[in-house]
């Protein structure tokens, strides 16, 4: 089965790209594909290229990929409760990363690890503690420290706050944003939260059933979404001006089973604007206005898609 199909994305240095979609849309799979960390078996990348700083990651040898991982591209994972090795101290887990990608050894690497912990707000006396001695939010801070320890040029965060307590989600998100600019790394944020994307990202890509359906900068996309699916996502977000007791509109139906994608545009069965052509064949990405791409035969008119 193909979980992710025909994906074209470009991310410029120092910029933050939001990657938005429902659960099961293939966001995490895409992130893991960039790092070439898809479990085989059962997973497999069947084709395509992943260009990073002018090189195709798909064509690299295993050793070259290892040099990219952690050093040039690193990742913050979704669930901090399970993403840290329970048998190693947090310091050791950061030191491991540093030891792999820099000349620093022993004391020096240890000092650097303490700096990283301080940077994410963990006191040095806790460096010899094990993951189970930290709360979820603190563990995610450790995860951030690991990911940024080698100052990667691309940082991927896979729903970094979903598994956390609501009260500290904002803190952790802020920390990531702050450190992203400190380290000056490109940032790929995977989330289903359009609000967070608006605050943090420069560009946004909307993903549906393993495909990008719309891609643009924040300003254009939020002021006039072109794809009916994007529009649906916005309508499903509760807003302050929503009348109390009024119903949120939801997108009817469920995301398709990736084993059994519908013919034509994957969104067509749920799309309020679908016409016969949509059920026949997919449109493919096209540039509807400068810098604003959409994968739809009949994008919403500039007026009709507007978000007030």
């Amino acid at each position: 089965m193909h979980a992710v199909n025909h994906l074209n994305l470009t991310l410029h240095r120092g910029k933050a790209l939001g990657f938005v979609g429902e659960t099961g849309a293939g966001k995490t799979t895409t992130a893991l594909a960039i790092l070439q960390l898809i479990q085989t078996p059962p997973g497999k990348i069947t084709g395509g290229s992943i260009m990073f700083e002018g090189h195709d990651i798909m064509k690299m040898t295993e050793a070259e990929k290892r040099q990219i991982r952690g050093d040039r591209i690193s990742m913050i994972f979704q669930d901090p409760m399970t993403s840290l090795n329970p048998l190693k101290t947090v310091e050791d887990q950061i030191v491991e990363m540093i030891g792999l990608h820099s000349a620093m050894k022993g004391e020096e690497a240890r000092k650097r690890a303490l700096e990283m912990l301080a940077l994410v707000g963990i006191r040095p006396e806790r460096s010899k503690d094990y993951p189970h001695q930290f709360s979820g939010g603190m563990r995610q801070r450790v995860g951030i420290a690991i990911a940024l320890a080698c100052e990667p040029s691309l940082l991927i965060a896979d729903e970094p706050t979903t598994a956390l307590d609501v009260t500290i989600q904002a803190q952790v998100m802020e920390l990531i944003k702050k450190l992203q600019s400190v380290v000056n790394t490109s940032f790929l944020l995977i989330t289903h939260d359009l609000g967070i994307v608006a605050e943090i990202c420069d560009d946004v890509a909307i993903m549906y059933a393993g495909r990008i359906v719309e891609y643009s900068n924040i300003r254009q996309l939020y002021s006039h979404p072109l794809h009916p699916y994007t529009r649906g996502l916005f309508d499903a977000v509760p807003r302050l001006d929503t009348r109390l007791g009024g119903k949120l509109s939801v997108i009817p139906g469920l995301p398709p089973d990736p084993i059994d994608l519908p013919k034509g545009c994957a969104f067509s069965p749920r799309c309020p604007k679908a016409r016969p052509l949509c059920h026949e064949r997919e449109c493919g990405m096209r540039e509807y206005e400068p810098g604003h791409f959409v994968n739809c035969h009949f994008p919403l008119e500039l007026g009709e898609g507007g978000v007030q």
């Binding site: 893991l32 790092l35 960390l37 479990q39 295993e62 990929k65 290892r66 040099q67 990219i68 991982r69 952690g70 050093d71 690193s74 990742m75 994972f77 669930d79 399970t82 993403s83 840290l84 090795n85 329970p86 491991e96 990363m97 792999l100 990608h101 995860g143 690991i146």
Partner: peptide, 16 residues
Amino acid sequence: IRSDYIRTARAKGQKE
């Protein structure tokens, strides 16, 4: 091997 922290270790660029 299927657990998240093994994926983390791989994401660090550690040798298999």
